[in-house]
Design a protein around this nucleic acid. Structure first.
Lengths: 123, 123
DNA sequence: CTAAAACCTGACGTTGACGTCAGAGGCAAG
DNA sequence: CTTGCCTCTGACGTCAACGTCAGGTTTTAG
């Protein structure tokens, strides 16, 4: 599969894929003319990369952690980094849940104010 | 309270506070000589701003939403924006939970491999 | 065979939330 | 009064994950 098809199937831009290669997140075979060719599994790998980005993991960390995420092998140091990243994500989830709850409270209060207080236009 | 004390008490940098003012998130009284002076409530307000930033809300959105978060009043449009922001945060929480679960799985698998497989050095 | 579409490298542009530095003024203590 | 810390306003620097453009080659469709 060439880069355009992978981009479409994985739902990212061609530029992003070249960037991933630059960051050592995604290798590619090259045809004699220099074009990139990917195996089918690349689609899942790109989705995995996206998932980690969405969780706030940096390219650097992804590059370190991807190998063992893929094949389940890790040194003790890597296990530490995995746990550290996991804990960071966990804390961030907590922060976001508090923020969401706060917004929920505000929405409830503002809706209540809206119903009990003025209606459409002040009169 | 002057800017340095607020920064310390709220746990942010002085630069951040000036930036918040620039973004219309945090107003300040000025002394005759031009120095900023804040009331005690500013500490909580800064913490609130930080909480929203941590949830991925932009300065622009915070500026729009802060008034009604503070006093519980909102127009229907603002209620829509509040809900939209809430839903965005909710989706992001979902993404992060998946990522965390994925890392948990990897950690469990790698730990198991570590115990059953090679021990310290291959022999 | 040719034109369009896809691909290549290299390099500069973007955005958000600040960091950092320069140069100048303000304020409490000794 | 002066020493030392705090504050002020600009204004440029940073970092990550790409976007975008230029200029050229390759592949594909007709």
């Amino acid at each position: 599969m060439r880069i355009g098809e992978l981009a479409t199937r994985a739902g990212v831009s061609v530029r992003a894929l070249r960037y991933y290669e630059e960051q050592n997140l995604l290798a590619a075979e090259r045809s004699p003319s220099g074009q990139r060719h990917y195996p089918d599994g690349a689609v899942d790998r790109v989705r995995l990369i996206q998932q980690l980005y969405a969780a706030g993991v940096t390219s650097r960390s992804i590059a370190d952690l991807l190998p063992c995420v893929v094949d389940g092998q890790a040194t003790p140091e890597l296990l530490d980094r995995l746990s550290a990243e996991r804990d960071r994500i966990d804390r961030q989830i907590g922060d976001m849940v508090s923020a969401r709850d706060r917004l929920d409270t505000v929405i409830a209060a503002a809706t209540a104010n809206w119903r009990t207080g003025q209606r459409c236009r002040p009169e």
